[in-house]
């Protein structure tokens, strides 16, 4: 499998290189693979303390992504649990959830900058908002879909609502919850980058805007490669966690391909 992946990548890069060599696409549109590699090496070999280093910005983006994800996912899960368990909470929350659900949520990025400023708070908030919805919707469905016979088994033991939740609903919802978390982590990074485009002092979005203004296309490509790799690491970590917790699910990897 690894051989196939390596082969596929090699073919892709070769095609890219020949597109650059045998046509007259200007390098500010499509830079050569080797100049992207050079820009990448340049960006990651600098001290993390200088502003032109990729690390300087990546750490900030990563920190906002992970904190935003943690906050959004926690709120989403707790809210989903309460909505699934208590009709009152569901009815109270539903108009907001439905209303916000249809809103393109990245559009509130400028508002968040007005409220929270150019620091990391607005980025974290954007990431949290984007994480919250997929986690909430999937979690809600997970908590709701407990098999009837399992609930009856607990009812026969006169289990309390909390016991039923803890022994049946929560573990049973884990496959759905992870499906939500997978979408959530991708959205968290998206939210952070969009927020950095809108206005921030540090972050990969910021350095990409700077590279863009000087038409350093190879630099932008290099930043994208780094972001792609970071996203891959985040998703892989999530999948590892999922394998440990949801080893029992028949269709354990519901999120393959996302």
């Amino acid at each position: 499998m690894w051989l196939q992946i390596a082969l596929s990548l090699a073919v892709g890069v070769a095609a890219w290189q020949s597109a650059v060599s045998f046509s007259d696409i200007p390098s500010y549109v499509l830079p050569a693979p080797k100049s992207v590699l050079a820009a990448l090496l340049d960006g990651i070999s600098q001290s993390p303390l200088v502003r032109s280093s990729f690390w300087f910005h990546l750490f900030d983006t990563l920190k906002a992504t992970v904190s935003g994800f943690a906050i959004g996912a926690s709120i989403g899960l707790v809210l989903a649990a309460f909505m699934a368990e208590f009709r009152v909470v569901e009815n109270a929350a539903l108009p907001y959830v439905v209303g916000l659900q249809s809103l393109p949520k990245v559009a509130i990025a400028p508002l968040l900058v007005i409220w929270l400023g150019y620091g990391s708070e607005s980025k974290v908030a954007m990431a949290a908002v984007l994480t919250l919805f997929p986690v909430l919707i999937n979690g809600l469905q997970g908590f709701r879909s407990s098999a009837r016979d399992r609930l009856e088994m607990m009812a026969a033991l006169k289990a309390s609502r909390w016991q039923t939740f803890r022994h049946i609903k929560l573990p049973g919802a884990l496959p759905m919850i992870f499906a939500g978390l997978h979408i959530g982590i991708v959205y968290a990074m998206l939210g952070t980058i969009v927020s950095e485009f809108t206005g921030a002092q540090r972050g990969m979005g910021v350095i990409m805007m700077q590279l863009q203004t000087v038409s350093d296309t190879a630099g932008v490509f290099a930043a994208l490669v780094l972001l792609g790799f970071t996203g891959y690491v985040l998703i892989s970590t999530m999948r590892l966690l999922q394998r440990r917790l949801v080893f029992w699910a028949e269709n354990g990897d519901q999120t393959r391909g996302i």
Binding site: D149, R150, E152, M153, A156, L157, K158, H167, I168, P171, L174, V246, W248, A249, E250
Partner: peptide
């Protein structure tokens, strides 16, 4: 009244929890 706990039930299907 449903409050007695002195009952054991074996259902038609096993209903074991896979986790």
């Amino acid at each position: 009244n449903g409050a007695q706990t002195g009952t054991g039930v074996v259902f038609q299907t096993p209903v074991l929890l896979p986790w």
